[in-house]
């Protein structure tokens, strides 16, 4: 992993009167949400979170509604003022930044895409996309030229003169995306950007994000409540509940070794074969396995290994970094597939 682009350390956000005292009070900070509310009238939306986001990584924050994920992402650029903790961007603590510094961060380093788009209804697509550039004082020609490029990039060419309410939801979100990209920020924050869209359009937009990520390589922090979206996009996923981290890891780590019942329930309906790699079902090499048996990488997703394993008359060997780590056979594949079929 590269040096982290964003580091979050012991971040707290407590809503309610006197909330600033809670993180430093060991007794209060140990209470659970219900007790805290009863005792102090405060709600801790983010409690003591720490994580790192690497450069170029797609980091997904996932949780059900009310888990604090939207508050968390807003704390990163202080759209919501965190109560305590650190948010380090390029080694500088955002929480300590002055107004001008913070504004500079928002203008150049981190842009955000919102669930309800947040487009300005009185501006055309062109003016919406170039809005951020206008805010930081770019000349008209320059910002329009840049905005036109971006509009083409997000697939809205020909719609420059339209107003937001003349566009479909998906297209509006493309404008939102374009607006975030126009300023060429290092990081893009997504707050449930596709949850207001139809399933088909959502799939298109997810593909669009993957494509843009490949083309531009931006760091992305992506908030969602949709596990399949998280698994599809995220290099790593942080699952939140009641403002706390429950588990943080890659998709196959979550599915393969859930830390508790909560995560287990959460991932129970995930088609495991689509997520898990061979690593998770590798067994020690059995004595009878021929040495010339087919070899697959341990990072192969199970679904992709099915046909090879089924075709092979003997177990298949699994290697990691050139070393044989174990073997798999038909039974181990079937054991992954079955529970899903049973559940379905």
């Amino acid at each position: 992993m590269n040096s982290p682009d964003i580091s979050v350390r012991n971040l707290w956000k407590v809503f309610g009167p006197g909330g600033e005292k809670i993180p430093n009070n060991p007794e209060l900070s140990a209470l659970n949400s219900a007790e805290l509310l009863a005792r102090t009238g405060c709600v801790a939306a983010v409690r003591n979170l720490s994580f790192d986001v690497a450069k170029g990584e797609v980091f997904v924050v996932m949780g059900l509604s009310g888990s604090g994920k939207s508050t968390l992402i807003r704390c990163l650029t202080r759209l919501i003022e965190p109560t305590s903790g650190e948010v380090l961007v390029d080694g500088k603590d955002v929480l300590q930044a002055g107004i001008a510094e913070l504004r500079e961060l928002r203008r150049r380093k981190m842009s955000m895409v919102f669930q309800h788009f947040g487009l300005l209804p009185h501006r055309t697509v062109l003016d919406n996309v170039s809005y951020g550039l206008q805010i930081r004082g770019a000349a008209k020609n320059e910002r329009y030229a840049r905005a036109r490029e971006i509009i083409e990039l997000v697939g809205l060419k020909g719609y420059e003169r339209h107003y937001p309410d003349q566009l479909s939801g998906g297209m509006q979100q493309r404008v939102g995306l374009g607006r975030a990209l126009a300023g060429d920020p290092d990081t893009i924050l997504f707050d449930e950007p596709f949850s207001a869209l139809d399933p088909l359009i959502r799939r298109d937009m997810q593909a669009e994000v993957i494509r843009l990520h490949k083309e531009m390589g931006k760091t992305m922090v992506f908030v969602t409540h949709d596990l399949s979206e998280a698994l599809k996009l995220g290099d790593r996923i942080l699952i939140m509940r009641n403002g706390e981290t429950v588990q943080c890891g890659t998709g196959d780590e979550l599915v393969g070794s859930p830390v508790d019942k909560y995560i287990e329930d959460f991932v129970s309906e995930v088609p495991r074969a689509d997520v898990l790699t061979l690593k998770w079902i590798t067994r020690p090499v059995a004595p009878g396995t021929p040495g010339d048996a087919p070899v697959l990488s341990s990072r192969t997703v199970i679904r992709d290994a099915i046909s090879a394993v089924m075709r092979s008359s003997c177990p298949v060997l699994v290697e990691d970094a050139g070393k044989i780590t174990g073997q798999i056979d038909r039974d181990s594949i079937l054991s992954v597939l079955q529970p899903v079929e049973a559940a379905a």
Partner: peptide, 15 residues
């Protein structure tokens, strides 16, 4: 004015 529009504009660093 809807909170989300305001927020969107703030997120771009408006004065």
């Amino acid at each position: 004015i809807p909170e989300n529009t305001r927020e969107a504009s703030d997120s771009l660093g408006t004065t």
